[in-house]
């Protein structure tokens, strides 16, 4: 599996130096007494470990009890995942594409998806469980995680629409199609030599950036600059640091900041209600606003300032 880089081209002397160094390290480590020598910390109980031990391994080790169907997964996926990953796993904007791309790995622009590139279904389950949905990580139940995992497999034509994923059916899907195409690191894999003179006959410039510095600056559209008259600097700062991730792009059904029509109805609810929704969370028709947008480190005042900033921008 894993291989250490070859100690190639080592001079005998450096090898000896290295061995001496290694021996010295061993001596230092040997000074560390046996298990529990320092006795620091508390011994972890099984219950404590279970609370944090969330990883799933390729053979299914770590899988929780439960199951989830493609059918249930479809509803959950549409609700929780499609706004970033697309209804068919095609990806929205720069968010990851999840399906398709089979046979593209050797092409100029390979599309690396669950079906075309990933090796293990455990990675999919594990990652959804630990980090998804993006604005509300680790919020899905085990059953929901099973169902969404099953549905992403379905989007990649890897299971039928009646498939139910559980510990019992794990082995059927544990290995993804590209599983056998991962290889160990063979580096160093280049054999450059230290030539000092006449190293090549001629030199041609073969590539230069095609975008100008001005275009790079113009592309800086992720920071929302306050409109004239909106001097709520704190709100702007909180918005750009916390809210922009969804409200710039409309991810997760979030009303986009510049979508004035969508904001009209909300404005009618009044500032106080909207601040309350932002702080406590709110289930709307288009999507769900998590409490404080999932940024529980923000104070109520921060959130209120951001809401006021957004309302001033939307008016």
């Amino acid at each position: 599996m894993f291989r250490f880089p070859k100690l190639y081209k080592f001079k005998r002397l450096s090898l000896i130096v290295l061995l001496v160094a290694a021996f010295a390290t061993t001596v230092v480590n040997a000074k560390v007494k046996g298990v529990g020598h320092y006795g620091y910390g508390k011994v972890a109980t099984a219950e404590e470990i279970a609370g944090w031990d969330i990883d799933i391994r390729p053979d299914g080790r770590g899988l929780p009890p439960g199951s989830g169907s493609v059918e249930d997964g479809e509803i959950l996926y549409e609700d929780q995942c499609a706004s970033c990953h697309g209804s068919f796993g095609e990806g929205v904007g720069k968010y990851p594409v999840l399906a398709g791309g089979e046979g593209t790995l050797t092409e100029e622009r390979p599309e690396k998806t669950v079906g075309s590139f990933w090796a293990h279904t455990s990675t999919l389950f594990d990652y959804i469980r630990r980090a998804m949905p993006f604005p509300q990580p680790a919020s899905l139940s085990d059953e929901e995680t099973y169902a969404i995992t099953a549905y992403v497999l379905y989007l990649n034509d890897l299971v039928e629409d009646d498939f139910v994923l559980s510990q019992d059916t794990w082995d059927e899907v544990a290995k993804l199609p590209n599983n056998s195409n991962f290889v160990p690191d063979p580096r160093p894999d280049t054999q450059a030599v230290r030539c000092m003179k006449d190293c090549k006959k001629e030199v041609k410039i073969v590539s230069e950036p095609t975008i100008t510095a001005e275009e790079v600056a113009a592309a800086d559209d992720t920071i929302v600059k306050a409109a004239a008259g909106n001097e709520n600097e704190k709100g702007a700062s909180v918005y750009n640091g916390a809210c922009a991730v969804c409200h710039n792009s409309g991810v997760a059904g979030a009303p986009k900041l510049d979508d004035k029509a969508t904001w009209k109805a909300r404005l009618a609810l009044g500032e106080a209600t909207l601040i309350k929704h932002a702080i406590e969370g709110f289930q709307g028709d288009a999507g769900m606003m998590p409490p404080k947008g999932g940024r529980m480190d923000l104070s109520d005042e921060d959130v209120a300032a951001a809401v006021k900033f957004m309302l001033a921008e939307a008016e």
Binding site: M1, F2, P5, D55, R57, P58, L105, T106, P110, K112, V114, F117, W118, A119, H120, S122, T123, D126, Y127, A131, N181, F182, V183, P184, D185, P186, R187, P188
Partner: peptide, 29 residues
């Protein structure tokens, strides 16, 4: 054995021209 997390499979693996991908490419040369 390795845990095959997302950041060592779908990302942080090096796709080669033959379609194979190198995994656990740790060293910064």
């Amino acid at each position: 054995s390795p845990y095959y997390q997302r950041e060592e499979t779908s990302k942080y693996t090096d796709l080669m021209p033959d379609g194979k991908a190198r995994e656990f490419t740790f060293v910064q040369e």
